[in-house]
Design a binder for these strands. Structure first.
Lengths: 251, 251
DNA sequence: GTTGATCTGTGGGCCGTCTCACAGATTCAG
DNA sequence: CTGAATCTGTGAGACGGCCCACAGATCAAC
């Protein structure tokens, strides 16, 4: 059997599908390769499909009237995105852009809808996905209201540590490289301010940065400073637990 | 048949249930009356149920470390809330407080889970609910990032107009009364600033306020000023479309 | 009603953040 | 490897919005 869609079976959303379902899913879906910086979709585009990212990284964002990016979410391999279209079915509201060279699978909306109807597990999985994302975004909203730029940045670093952190001898290394500009458009600030605050944190010994690698040296202290529980970071960095690659098949 | 739970059948989430399902749902659910200002639940409380609001109004909010409220959502009759518990099943993260005298139905989590499994319509409804709320909260997030206090307030007024607005001779009347403090805790600002901005808008002729009734006199102009499409406001104010009361039964 | 509690309006001082403007460092693509 | 593009660091000036402090209005409950 054609294995080019092996990840369908390894994505937790689809892993319990019957072989027939997988076959049909493969038949109607198509893989795509995108270079860094190119768009998956954009606002006001008709939304007739959902996407599953299999490698690389995608960011979802709005553009404000002054041309600033406002980042809604970062998508990692194994994650489904563009899934709000399942219901309101109309148009996209945000940009989806590949942050690095990425591959993804495009799944027609009808197919997802049908799967949800025929397979309770999928419906449940989609619902859970939406619930989790909402929880995440509610936390972000909370961290934006009433908080200073510094607090927002620290809060973001904690989130990133929870998602991409790997414990090393020196502290917790963030397995994702973001420019100051990108950090700023996540917390709703400016590039310059982020530069300054990161500088402060570095002087205070809370973290070090070299070649865009951020290493948190005092995660607990930082978490405490914003009255938050430090995120759990596994000792061996399992960066993308959502996709389990078949043994011996490296991308 | 006991009609005290008529609203279960009239809430769009449950309206297509079979009589047996409704009966069981009624059997395990319980109605509650809450006075203005009392809590439905609070953070770190175990979350073993979801709630359906049948009358009144509920707000969901966090409290920041400095004791400020950060409002996440306002709940109107016919809406389900506290539903994130269906999945992460652990503890509440926010406060739920009755803004006015309210009645609500408490539904055990197990029952909702079971309904979702047995009845695809319910599963679909819950998923749609989550999707819509997420869309709403993403819009709010977007309106918070990079926007001035004035823009955030205007944006909020537009949202409220879409949800509670009724077209009258003078303009659009908001069918909800919120204090400046409450408006501030929705947009992440302070009471004083809201007072000032509302004053400005009033001077400019965009709106008038009398006894906490806000009347938007130039909704389109306000929407234009923040580069947003004015919300749709029906001519006859159908305030709570989610619940259709049985004819002749006024609360 | 009356009265206590809550809300609204207004002003001044101050701190944080944004804007603008460069210069040097780093990265990326060919 | 090398130039072009992008990122990082830093400073000065301006302004929005916050905090504090009160006084008058309005509301809600008895």
């Amino acid at each position: 059997m054609d294995e080019k869609f092996w990840y369908l079976k390894n994505c937790d959303l689809f892993e319990r599908l019957s072989p027939e379902h997988v076959a049909r899913l493969e038949a109607v879906s198509q893989a795509k390769q995108l270079a860094r910086g190119s768009l998956v979709y954009m606002p006001s585009e008709a939304s007739e499909s959902v996407f599953l990212l299999t490698s690389g990284r995608v960011k979802l964002y709005h553009i404000t009237s002054e041309g600033k990016q406002a980042v809604l979410a970062l998508i990692d391999p194994g994650e489904l995105f563009g899934e709000l279209t399942i219901f309101d079915g109309g148009q996209r509201e945000e940009f989806a852009e590949a942050m690095e060279k990425s591959t993804l699978i495009r799944i027609p909306r009808d197919e997802i809808t049908r799967l949800m109807e025929e397979h309770a597990g999928v419906a449940l999985g989609v619902t859970r996905l939406m619930g989790l994302r909402r929880r995440r975004i509610e936390r972000r909203l909370k961290s934006l209201l009433f908080r200073s730029n510094r607090e927002r940045l620290v809060h973001l670093l904690m989130e990133l540590a929870g998602k991409y952190g790997q414990r090393t001898a020196d502290g917790v290394t963030l397995g994702i490289k973001l420019s100051h500009q990108e950090l700023a458009s996540i917390i709703g600030s400016t590039r310059e301010t982020v530069t300054v605050v990161l500088g402060e944190l570095q002087n205070e010994g809370s973290l070090t940065i070299k070649r865009r690698q951020i290493i948190l040296r005092d995660m607990d202290g930082m978490a405490r400073s914003i009255e938050m529980n430090p995120p759990h970071v596994p000792v061996t960095g399992q960066v993308f637990p959502a996709v389990r690659r078949p043994a011996g098949l490296e991308t």
